[in-house]
Design a protein around this nucleic acid. Structure first.
Length: 349
DNA sequence: AAATCGTGGTG
DNA sequence: TCACCAAGATT
């Protein structure tokens, strides 16, 4: 039986991960959200830090979003943290702090989709739902030679049925962990260890030499260029920050005052832009320096960034009412994207 | 249903 | 170097 072979492989090869030593649905939930599109080694430190500060769902529900985002700083995909916080409040108020124990209720939580709902349902409650993540898509596509794109509507249906069939009557909490771990360690995206694979004799891709062509993905991404001019307004050890609002990237995170443009700006163009005039009005200021271009590469956009260093007098600070002036120590309470946090850590102030 | 949301590792 | 992509979800 295929499922038994994978489970046997798992018993001999599994890693000792912190969230595998618990049945607490809250802790399993935290780990699953952190692991979305994120490597295990990256998530581990965040998991310890986060669950130490928020040991229970009530602790999380009663926290400020700013602190939640602060603990998520550097991990990326910050909507995960905002949704996690939102869902914690739901559990606290609607479910009186008791984590829901049915697939349907878990799936309804903000930030929990079909994969995460199946993972929590099976790991914490032993419910028979096949958890299908990127690892499972890859393993099944190769074993059965499925060329339907995994990111198509048709593919998701097909793999859902295939995964449920393959799980069979195996213990869901063991089988799901097993096939995910098998994909992560054995049936890897690049150069998988086929020669020592326990199921290679039953693998379509292996026998037909199609390992590096499966799974198939259809969608491609084309990054777009943006131009950020961050104003580092400093005055005796303090600098200006503001909260990012709106639906854009880094929502509710903090940053330096920003002038954004859809094209590169010369220094003169920047100084004469409406945004510059709006911020500085009639202020006297000293433009100290402009950094080299730093390209912050994201999946869907390249953010071309320059940091404009400006000295501001104590008198002029009062004019910038929309900004918060903090020193380095105080800034540690605020959540910043990597781009900004790196500058704070390196800036000489 | 396609676009969007971060960051870091890898070959 | 750079394309790929990692325990996906939302709109």
């Amino acid at each position: 039986m295929l499922n038994n072979q994978i489970i046997n492989w798992y018993c001999e090869n599994k890693r000792d991960l912190p969230w595998r030593n618990t049945k607490d649905p809250y802790l399993i939930w935290i780990s699953e959200i952190m692991l979305q599109q994120t490597r295990v080694v990256t998530a581990i430190d965040y998991y310890y830090k986060f669950t130490k500060r928020f040991p229970t769902v009530t602790d999380l529900a009663l926290a400020d979003e700013q602190e939640v985002l602060n603990l998520w700083q550097g991990l990326g995909y910050y909507s995960r943290a905002r949704n996690l916080h939102h869902a914690a409040k739901t559990i606290h108020t609607i479910y009186k702090g008791i984590f829901p124990s049915t697939y349907k209720e878990i799936l309804a939580l903000k930030g929990v989709g079909t994969y995460t709902a199946a993972a929590i349902s099976s790991f914490a409650f032993n419910l028979p739902y096949a958890a299908i993540d990127g690892n499972v898509y890859r393993v099944l596509a190769r074993l059965f030679g499925i060329e339907t794109p995994i990111d198509s509507t048709e593919g998701k249906k097909l793999f859902q049925n295939l995964a449920t069939e393959t799980m069979g009557n195996a213990r869901p909490e063991v089988y799901n962990q097993a096939i995910i771990e098998f994909g992560a360690l054995q049936c890897t995206p690049k150069s998988p260890s086929c020669s020592i694979c326990p199921v290679h004799s039953n693998c379509f891709a292996y026998s037909s030499n199609m390992i590096d062509q499966l799974p198939v993905k259809s969608k491609q991404i084309k990054p777009k260029n943006r131009y950020f001019y961050y104003l580092f307004l400093s005055c005796s050890g303090r600098f200006a920050i503001e909260k990012r609002e709106g639906k854009d990237i880094w929502k509710n995170m903090y940053q330096y005052p920003l002038i954004e443009s859809n094209a590169e700006l010369s220094t003169d163009q920047l100084l004469q832009s409406d945004q510059w005039k709006e911020i500085f009005d009639s202020s006297n200021l000293v433009l100290q320096s402009i950094s080299d271009n730093i390209v912050h590469k994201l999946t869907h956009q390249n953010i071309n960034t320059r940091f404009i260093h400006i000295d501001v007098s104590a008198e002029e600070i009062k004019k910038f009412k929309r900004f918060i002036f903090v020193n380095k120590k105080e800034s540690e309470k605020y959540p910043f994207p990597k781009l900004i946090n790196n500058h704070i850590l390196n800036c000489d102030i």
